[in-house]
């Protein structure tokens, strides 16, 4: 027990928690825009996975992880555009559209990777982001190594939180976006272009989820493997709900999950006689328990409901 306490207090654990939370955080911050505009962000997994491959290919062929990051955002954006077309223009059921898109992303990334490299035993590596030590701050005791020695996309993820808060709650655009998710009918009468807001929200979710994916193939890791996102998009989606659709709540939820995962790996490293299967389920169980304590969640009222513009002008 004291050993576990030691882990919890270690700088290494805090550093790892931030690292492991950051891909989730990027994707979940994106997903917030989609959810607050009234469209479920269940497609995050597919968007992330596409971003993971695109980042790898972009970085591999250009030699720069920055190109990879842009490619990842673009790939996530394209997947999001398809999702938006299905959900907003065609008013399709959002869950089925997302499920279809996620299956499609597994197939498409698998095929593309194999198309590009075939089955060879050579390891394909792409240039990845290197840690940026923030001048002065990274030398601070304790805080420095925990907070200021990360990769660029990790900083991006954390800096996004205040930006998202500002944009969603302090700008007219944010108000319009939220109104599209709360009461699209009323929003429309006040001149908000609900469909356009929803498109924008979904595409932002794709851009950020793609970037979150890039952290896996050109950030912490410098190679690609089929299905390497391993369900992170689902966790990011869960974090939004857990966070009660607020940026702060979502941020805390991703941190909780990242920390729980970092903790279970460290408990494994302690060599206690606990079967690893039980440790692997720990982050999910902890999240579930926390959720029960946190209690009632309030979704944007029109979340998941396709919106038909007043006047029904669709041909």
């Amino acid at each position: 027990m004291t050993e576990i306490l030691g882990v919890l207090l270690s700088a290494n654990f805090a550093f790892a928690s931030i690292r492991m939370a950051s891909p989730l955080l990027l994707a979940a911050m994106g997903g917030l825009f989609s959810e607050r505009a009234g469209v479920l962000s269940l497609g995050l997994e597919g968007m992330m996975l596409s971003g993971t491959l695109a980042a790898f290919l972009g970085s591999y062929y250009s030699g720069s992880p920055w190109v990879g990051l842009l490619a990842a955002a673009a790939a996530g954006g394209v997947v999001a555009l398809v999702y938006a077309a299905a959900c907003v223009t065609f008013r399709a059921n959002q869950v089925v559209a997302a499920v279809g898109l996620n299956i499609l992303a597994v197939g498409a990334t698998g095929l593309a990777f194999r198309g590009a490299f075939g089955v060879t035993h050579h390891l394909h590596r792409a240039p990845a982001f290197q840690p940026i030590n923030v001048p002065v701050l990274s030398d601070l005791p304790v805080v420095g190594p925990i907070l200021f020695r990360h990769l660029f996309p990790v900083y991006l993820a954390f800096l996004l939180v205040p930006v998202v808060i500002f944009v969603l709650y302090r700008t007219t655009w944010g108000l319009k976006l939220r109104s599209a998710g709360e009461n699209p009918l009323a929003a429309e009468t006040l001149g908000v272009k609900v469909e356009r807001m929803r498109y924008t929200g979904i595409i932002i979710s794709g851009l950020l989820a793609g970037m979150g994916g890039s952290l896996l193939s050109t950030g912490f890791i410098s190679t690609f493997m089929e299905e390497m996102t391993a369900g992170r998009g689902w966790i990011a989606f869960s974090a939004i709900i857990f966070g009660k659709w607020t940026p702060i709540g979502t941020f805390l939820a991703t941190m909780l999950f990242g920390a729980a995962d970092a903790l279970q790996l460290r408990v494994q490293a302690l060599g206690l006689a606990i079967p690893y299967q039980l440790l692997l389920l720990f982050p999910y169980l902890l999240t579930l328990c926390a959720l029960v304590l946190v209690g009632r969640t309030q979704a944007p009222a029109a979340l998941g409901t396709p919106y038909e513009r007043m006047g029904g002008s669709r041909k």
């Binding site: 790892a16 690292r19 492991m20 891909p23 896996l216 912490f220 890791i221 190679t223 493997m225 089929e226 299905e227 390497m228 391993a230 995962d261 970092a262 790996l265 460290r266 494994q268 490293a269």
Partner: peptide, 13 residues
């Protein structure tokens, strides 16, 4: 397939 988790497990060690 989860390479990132493999890396984290090693880093924890």
């Amino acid at each position: 397939t989860d390479i990132a988790k493999g890396k984290e497990a090693a880093l924890a060690q």
